[in-house]
Amino acid sequence: MKNFSGKVLFLDRDDINTDEIIPARYLTENSKEALQPYLLEDLEMTGFDPRQDIAGKAAIVTRDNFGCGSSREHAPWALEVNNINIVIGVGFARIFRQNMYNCGLMAVQLPSDTIEQLFARFAGKDTTVTTDFEKRKLVFSAGDQVEELEFELGGFDKALVEAGGWIGYADEKY
């Protein structure tokens, strides 16, 4: 199983699409690793600089409908090769969400008021999330601020994370 704990990158916008996560001009690469420098290159948000803000982060907290648009699995791969294995948000586009779990990564959904609270308490601070996969708990901390949250994980999603992705699971079963 992959690592789902570490420093948090906050992206305060709904509908961040796959073109913003990894632009189409990089889809001619034939390896995941080659995508590493280009993650979120086209995401234009006040105060966000991909070259500075991604380094050292292991998780993203965002709003609703993250990963909408194209089916490109390059989006989860670009996250993965930057050591970001978990995205936490109000909701995800269907294909992106499935692609995450198919790669053994996590797309965790929390209620919008919980996400709102996380932004209010932690955005802009040096925040760490610790994920307890078995107990389905997320612990956010920054300085003396600590928040513990429970999350839900479907049976299939859990199986894919444990199997390290869908190919291994399907090859054995079907």
């Binding site: 294909i95 090859d171 079907y174």
Partner: peptide
Amino acid sequence: GVGTTDLAVGILK
């Protein structure tokens, strides 16, 4: 529409 992993499994299985 699906990602590359779903596609790989579709091709294989």
